[in-house]
Amino acid sequence: MGASPKRAAGGAGSKKAPPAAQDAAEDCLGLYRTMVLIRHFEESMRRLAAAGETPGLVHLCSGQEATNVGVILALREGDYIASHHRGHGHCIAKGAPIDLLAAEILGKAPGICGGRSGSMHVVDLPRGNLGTNGIVGGGIPLAAGAALAARARGTGEIAVCFFGDGALNQGLLHECMNMAAIWSLPVVFVCENNGYGEFTAMEDVTAGESVQARGEVFGIPSVTVDGMNVRAVRAATLAAAQRARIGEGPSFIVCNTWRYGGHHAGDKQDYKDDEETKRWEAADPLITFAKTLVDEKRASRDELAAIEAEVVARVKAAVAFARAAPQPAIETLEAHVHG
């Protein structure tokens, strides 16, 4: 199995994409720090899951940091996102405190949702996060609806919906793309195409040669970018966000990327091809961006190492906090069903 035609336009395993230029507003160390934070957070969650400390299923996004960070750090405060089941990175990039996120994933009282929702159902509306989502494609209309609300208010916010390649085959996506197009909604559709839905290769269940064509049929400006390159993702998002803010409607960004850990924590990934895995790992978004920063003399190796050390300490503290945190009180079981 090589790079499929549907994933050939960017990313590893394909013709090398031209390096994306730095934009004036880019906080390159901020991008790097957030990606490293997500990676270390996810690797900690992997260990906690292996130890049986995380209730339910945990889907990790190691490998997809550039799509999480490249998109979300191009947004403004007040903008909305809707995430999916592989959403810790989105939550972190949108500003969720990692100690409270870790507590939520462990089902503990100080968690963002009181420990009742866990990895797949983190709703963090105060930070504009409409939620990770246990239903594949479920967040797509939420983001489009938030965009509708923002437009009705005239307050200028935009909304981004993230979804995996699996959601490409949900009718909901096509319904929402159509409505976003006819109503020129300020929404950006972002497909994080990591090549697999659970244990099924994307190309085995997805017709047509081009993913981006699924936006184009609705007249939505659509691009495919190297989802391992944070700058490429950021540049595409800035262009899409700009269009959305000036009333030119939706955009579709296909980010070709890779999930290192498989479907859920503990997935043995026998269905993957070793050569393909090697190629993608060589394009690791953290390693490649670190090299870019050093080559461009924006940071020394030592400075990057210091950032990583600081992040490791933060994650360690967050995990310790979450593990020590109390379980939700029994009286909270039936709270907040209705107002």
Partner: peptide
Amino acid sequence: GAFGMAIGAAMA
């Protein structure tokens, strides 16, 4: 999709 959008609009 349209009902889902109503939910998103309500959340927002």
